[in-house]
Amino acid sequence: MRTKKEYLIRYKDGNLYCELADIWIDPSKPVKKALITHAHFDHFTFGCEEYISTKETAILLKERVGDNIKIKTFEYGEEFKINGINISFHPSGHILGSSQIRFIFAEEKWLISGDFKLQKDQTCKQYEIVKTDYLISECTFGLPIFKWDESNKIANDISKWITNSPEKTSLLFCYSLGKAQRLLNEISQTNFKGNIYSHGSIHKMNNSYRKLGIDIKDTIKIENKKKIDELKGSLILLPPSLSKGSYLKNFKNIQTAFASGWMSIRALRKRSGYDKGFAISDHADWDGILEVVKKSEAKNVFFHHGDSEALSKYLLEKESINVLLFSK
């Protein structure tokens, strides 16, 4: 039995773990049973006996890693039981299929935020406010210097960036799942009407999104030996892993940019080595995190993924919200 001091969910070997259900959340090493919040690779590992996720996450995962995994799926809001614990997925607004996970046991509610954002994103379901007693939240951008602009403003900046240099090929680096599709969706609503190419890994995810009913602009899959003139004035979406190394030699007369929340800081922009940075993120900014903490009505909050020291101190001083620390 669980004693008073033991939390329903705790940190074990660097991962979130619920002992009562013997289930792990986004584990980084193979386990028996894994709940997966979304299909990014830093939240997934091969070799688990069974995965449980939303339907969309399962489809995206299989597109990325093949059909060889056993995934059980549930709809958003649909409750299922493991060892007497009621578990359900709720939209987290991070990418298509991303979810928060709620646990209810003996009238005690726990909520794992997963990666989340509150900003509008037409390529996935809007974040849903879920009430809880215990909240485990990510805090990737847990400082007040992080405040996002509306994504259509960023898209307009990107459009201007491309059209201001018509003689150049504009390479925009972004994560291939989620960020790329959101950008495509936004850019297609701007004044930029030129060609858009995307790298194979992004192209594949675009198709998956379309199959799941999301409206994504048609892009041309980038081939390595495109004629240079053909690419002038067009936009090419590439995964960040290709920004270093010889891949860029395939192009001539380029300008590069990186789309990430970190790009709101000048020093990080300069250090990144890209010509330009667009501060757009699929994570919540400072105000977003505070809003979720407040609206969830959680009395106890844990943070992970990020530097939580300042955020915790602020919540305690200003909102009298108690932030707990996992013993890792």
Partner: peptide, 18 residues
């Protein structure tokens, strides 16, 4: 909190503008 932000940004003028 401003000082913590400063450590990330490295420039007082920029911290305040953010």
């Amino acid at each position: 909190l401003i000082d913590t932000c400063y450590l990330k940004v490295g420039d007082s003028a920029e911290v305040i503008s953010l």
